[in-house]
Design a protein around this nucleic acid. Structure first.
Lengths: 234, 234
DNA sequence: AGGTACGATAGAACAGCGTTCGGTAGAGAT
DNA sequence: ATCTCTACCGAACGCTGTTCTATCGTACCT
């Protein structure tokens, strides 16, 4: 009977069998090296030095593989976040945690598309959700406001991650076209638009051309946190 | 020579050939009826009463089909938004536009995953971006702040949309399992968690169980807008 | 030691996918 | 009548996730 059919009985969350570890590790390696399209059962099997069907002993489907691989690396992020000492200001704690999470996604853009898809399988994601929620318990908010606050924050993280996650059009992945030139080409197109009809695009095209992903995320996060801080009556 | 090879020469943005329209309309219909996995070239060809390869006359790849289909419906949203009269408060205008956009995504959850992926093909998305940006021109902000503000808003929209977009696990799509029961099963799992270790999850599990997607989005949006309002010195 | 149950593995095949190739029907111009 | 170009399509290719079936090796029981 395959491993994935007694999920409930498995219970304890750190009973990882040796090979389950290696399956997830190699899956993550493939994702890191060449993006989601590179993670196929055949490629993974070859890397593991085994047959394709063997993977189905550990995992019921590709979706579950993705979920488990995602949760595997989220485990690392969780460890980082659990190691943080709570500070005076809960808002600052929220910011620090969010930035840690975002940093991890920046290195692994594929994470964004699978993160928090299924907390049933993604146990670490659930723990991370809990950790993100704890600082809100120190804020003067209703339960509903707390729920909405953490939802808002994960929304900002996921939304930013998705922006990042779109696989660039091959030319930039090959290194033939630099990221700056890629952005520059878009900016050039935008600059040619009619100035009367597109006043805003013209206003921000310079900012867009030289924009930094972290800064952009930080700005979005800070707006949300400022709103939250206001709501908590600080 | 296929249509999609003289994109630059095409120029004028409303020269839609009759059949291009029907291709996009039927593609959208398939997406609406059974989600992204139902949109295959074979299914689409059958619906159009033609052959599979014919679709490639209008579209170079599935990615482009998705982009054009997305932009097709965004065109409708854009029309709605362009019909709105600007009010006194730019922030209120931003909120109204964002909610209109989100309403459209609520009806078509697949939209979120393809929205704003490639403004080169998605001309209406670019116009929508412009429209979203215009209210910020009336706020006391730097160009960079304006850029970040609109990015933050689209991030919230996209992030919420992605949450929505994950195809439910078939049982609820069949109607065999109601949405409430689906949420309830998750809630039940969460309630069984250790109360010491998961204080936040316990605090908000009731809110989660009965939560409304629009309300959740509105709360996230309002936090961002409150932060923006603060930044503009209102 | 022999038998047996079971954890773990894998090759081969299947159905479906996006995409490409080569060719064709028909209208309009020469 | 021939040529050209638009619009179209059947058949095949290579790839994917998934399933079927068979087979090792080891631990355990008698």
């Amino acid at each position: 009977m395959p491993r994935h059919q007694n999920r409930a009985a498995a219970g304890g969350r750190r009973r990882a069998s040796h090979s389950m570890e290696s399956v997830l590790t190699e899956a993550v390696a493939l994702l890191d090296e060449a993006g989601p399209s590179a993670l196929t059962f055949r490629a993974l099997a070859q890397r593991l030095g085994g047959g394709v069907a063997s993977i189905y002993w550990y995992v019921a489907s590709k979706d579950e593989l993705l979920d488990r691989a995602t949760d595997h690396v989220i485990g690392g992020v969780l460890a980082e976040i659990e190691a943080m000492e709570p500070g005076d200001d809960p808002i600052d704690d929220l910011r620090a945690m969010s930035l840690t999470l975002f940093d991890a996604i920046l290195v692994r853009p594929w994470l964004g598309n699978y993160f928090m898809r299924n907390t049933d399988v993604q146990g670490n994601a659930l723990r991370l959700y809990e950790k993100l929620g704890q600082p809100t318990l120190r804020l003067k908010l209703t339960a509903r406001q707390r729920f909405h606050a953490v939802s808002a924050i994960t929304t900002v993280v996921v939304g930013s991650a998705v922006d990042l996650g779109q696989e660039p059009p091959q030319e930039v992945l090959d290194g033939a076209l630099g990221r700056d030139e890629f952005l520059g080409r878009f900016a050039a197109t935008w600059r040619e638009l009619d100035a009367q009809e597109f006043p805003f695009v013209h206003e921000i095209v310079d900012e867009f051309e030289g924009h930094d992903d972290i800064e952009q995320f930080r700005a979005a996060l800070d707006l949300t946190l400022a709103g939250l801080s206001l709501q908590a009556g600080a």
